[in-house]
Design a protein around this nucleic acid. Sequence first.
DNA 1: ATGCAAATGCAAATCGTTTGCAAAAAGAAA
DNA 2: TTTCTTTTTGCAAACGATTTGCATTTGCAT
Lengths: 142, 142
Amino acid sequence: MNDQIKSPDYEDLLRNTGVRITRPRKIILKILSERADHPDAMAIFRRAVRLDDSISLSTVYRTMKLLEDKGAIQRHAFAGGPSRFEPADGEHHDHLIDIDTGGVIEFHSEKIEKLQDEIARSLGYEIVHHRLELYGRKKRRG
Amino acid sequence: MNDQIKSPDYEDLLRNTGVRITRPRKIILKILSERADHPDAMAIFRRAVRLDDSISLSTVYRTMKLLEDKGAIQRHAFAGGPSRFEPADGEHHDHLIDIDTGGVIEFHSEKIEKLQDEIARSLGYEIVHHRLELYGRKKRRG
DNA sequence: ATGCAAATGCAAATCGTTTGCAAAAAGAAA
DNA sequence: TTTCTTTTTGCAAACGATTTGCATTTGCAT
């Protein structure tokens, strides 16, 4: 019992689908499971290099794609920046991006979800996925 | 009275802000004013070349940026594709993208706008801009 | 017409991301 | 634990969308 931080147990998930647990992957998975943040590939790479300076950026990208395909993480392409990733444990939420800091706040509104469905339906469509991002700035008072 | 199709009169808008009306710009503006679509830079370029094969793609990009800065058009970066543009005449709306055809349907929901504002406010933020995109597929019945 | 700033075309650069390939490592079998 | 086959890696080069440097051309006020 020591460093077994395991929110979503990525390693098991991968092992169970016949994916090899390699050193680079172990490291990337550790980073992912520790971070509640929404890091981009480069940020993950920088952290990974600290733990093993032989890791390459392409492996980070390849691992992110792998995890995305397995449904373990989600990729978000926020406006004007690289893709950012987050564990796909919890349930659906949307994002409020602080345009000054780049910070991300998650939120969820059942009302909005409902309205989206209604709109799509009224236009003769079924929603496959959607993207709702608020870009804002912190108010000075509160 | 012949080909003076002029929904938003881009030429005047530019002229009035000290921008030169050049041949490439005339052509691009004509394309923009005729299209109710949401073309990307390459689509605009292809159409432009038909009218004047000396036009370059960089000029298309430069003109799009110019028009965007002037507030004449809006740029949308839909998921997994190049930026697409639309005249900025009407008032704000969101988009439903047909994932099979790439087609874009515009919609607006005052209720959703309100809810977004409420959410941002409750998180201590002011919305600067936002992005709401529904990606869907046409229903077989209606 | 004339002059000069602004705009163009071209090619090269950029950014984020993907890919080809030969070398290295995982893990099943022996 | 050695061997074998397959996957994964690191690297560098390729990628697609977009931007940029620069020498040349153009708009347009004079």
